[in-house]
């Protein structure tokens, strides 16, 4: 049988990409002052600290952090609720297949993108400056962040719906409100609820650190104990937060799986 020879695949482009990525990684590490020897030296310090935190943690402190934890969860719930509720009508306004006006969409989308891009922690420190310390500032920050996140995901979902169902409703004489109620909402509602739950998961994690800038919740307790070098208590807070976040994540993501 004849041997078949084919031309060799061109690898130059692939190699160039690999080299560029490698260069970027090494270059960034160098610029950031990251070096392995430093890590090795500090590993010792770090492990001592970890030892004081977790071997053993001060579990007797647990009752004292239940209330701040509940406050954290409450902040996440209220923030998610307000943000997601505001997000739905705005998502409808911004979707380009429901209202066809570039004049409306352009500015609104820029605002949404800004909200979504600013980390909740930055928003929180801003609102602490405006409203003072406490959970209220945290809730406002989480609301705005959730609003940006959920509205963006939702309007993209609205734009991807099956337009045939909208056309059918138009054909039988439905007005805009009826089209929204009977053709758009049934198609997007499960996704919207899923995004809201996802926002809640993100918010629980964000809410846990918001206290760091004085915006209430367990982060405030964390910061206080760290400042007093109560490392065994800090360990308890970390373990407790970890389990709460894990449980909420598991519940929420299992609901989300069933929704869509």
């Amino acid at each position: 049988m004849d041997k078949i020879t084919v031309s060799k695949p061109k690898k130059f482009k692939r190699n160039l990409i690999v080299l560029t990525i490698l260069f970027l990684i090494v270059g960034s590490a160098w610029f950031a002052g990251f070096n392995v020897i430093e890590v090795m030296i500090n590993l010792n310090k770090g492990s001592r600290l970890l030892g004081r935190m977790f071997f053993p943690p001060d579990l007797s402190y647990l009752p004292n952090i239940v209330d701040p934890m509940i406050e954290t969860i409450r902040m996440a719930i209220v923030g998610t609720f307000i943000g997601a509720t505001l997000a739905l009508p705005v998502a409808v306004l911004v979707a380009n297949n429901f209202i066809k006006s570039k004049l409306l969409h352009g500015p609104l989308r820029i605002i949404l993108n800004i909200f979504r891009t600013i980390p909740a922690l930055v928003l929180a420190s801003l609102f602490v400056a405006v409203f003072g310390t406490g959970p209220f500032s945290g809730v406002v920050a989480l609301s705005i962040f959730t609003f940006g996140l959920v509205s963006k995901l939702t309007y993209e979902t609205i734009e991807a719906i099956d337009y045939g169902q909208v056309e059918a409703l138009m054909s039988l004489g439905a007005n805009k409100m009826n089209i929204l109620r009977y053709a758009i909402m049934p198609q997007i509602l499960p996704q919207y609820m899923s995004y809201t739950l996802y926002g809640f998961e993100v918010n629980i994690r964000a809410a846990a650190v918001l206290g760091y800038v004085g915006a209430g919740g367990i982060g405030q307790t964390f910061e206080f104990n760290l400042a007093w070098r109560n490392f065994d208590r800090v360990g308890t807070i970390i373990i407790f937060s970890f389990f709460i976040v894990l449980i909420i994540d598991l519940i929420s993501s299992s609901i989300r799986k069933r929704l869509v």
Binding site: Q165, P186, Q187
Partner: peptide, 8 residues
Amino acid sequence: GFNIVKRM
């Protein structure tokens, strides 16, 4: 494509 609303 029928275009009935499938989730209703």
